[in-house]
Amino acid sequence: MKLPKLSLLVLKECIAKNVLGIHLFYIIVLFLLISFAQGAPDVFARRDLFLDGGMTVLFLFSLFFAMTVTFPMILLDLKENRLMIFLSTYVSRSRYVLHKALGAGITIALNHIILCILTSLSLYIVYETHPQWMFTVYWAIFLESLVLASAALFLSVTLSRFMAMMSTGFLFLIGHFTYYIEYYVNQLGNPLAGKIILNLYSLLPNFEVFGLKNAFLTAKTVPDFYILWLSVYASGWILVFLLGTCLWMEKKEF
């Protein structure tokens, strides 16, 4: 399959800017994590401690990378005078957005694969084990990265730079707050207000559904259909954000 040139350009630009150099930091963090886990009383506790920490670090690195790749993608083209030339002479506005988004998706996937390989290798080398469920968690983190990246892309074109950064951060935080929301709604004592809050929450992406690590670490089973549902859920949100970005770009003047 031939990749669109604009998509390849995103990947090339990231490589040229040494963005993938974050893996050096990641290796250092993994070393620190291994040495930290050595304080646990037995090998199983050490392994679980490393798994818990490793998955959290992978999640943070993947999401941060996804945001930093996607957020300036269109803004930089606008600032550096490329956008006017691309849109006036070479590609339609929607095609531009979709090809760029595909490029970002490929870059995020490449980064995520490298991070996952590093995590799995560290675990296997140090603890000589590799639970099968890690692949499911890897997939869930990747889906969450893509949802956040598409949200960052949408907000970066619709809002000012400052507001877009704040809103992406806010969306991420509030999307992870859903775990506690039912507790707070119960504390309210007003069923109508609680219902309104819960319904308002359902209008935003719920990032907590991607958090499978704890379920696996506490030996809970996650059914196959849940993974399928998760993939559909993420695809739905990605489509919504990309469609929103395309529509906005179609109406925007440069």
């Binding site: 350009l9 630009e13 550096e80 005078n81 490329r82 006017m84 030339i85 006036s88 002479t89």
Partner: peptide, 9 residues
Amino acid sequence: FLSELPLIL
């Protein structure tokens, strides 16, 4: 289209 500021990659 040739813009005033050159396109730079």
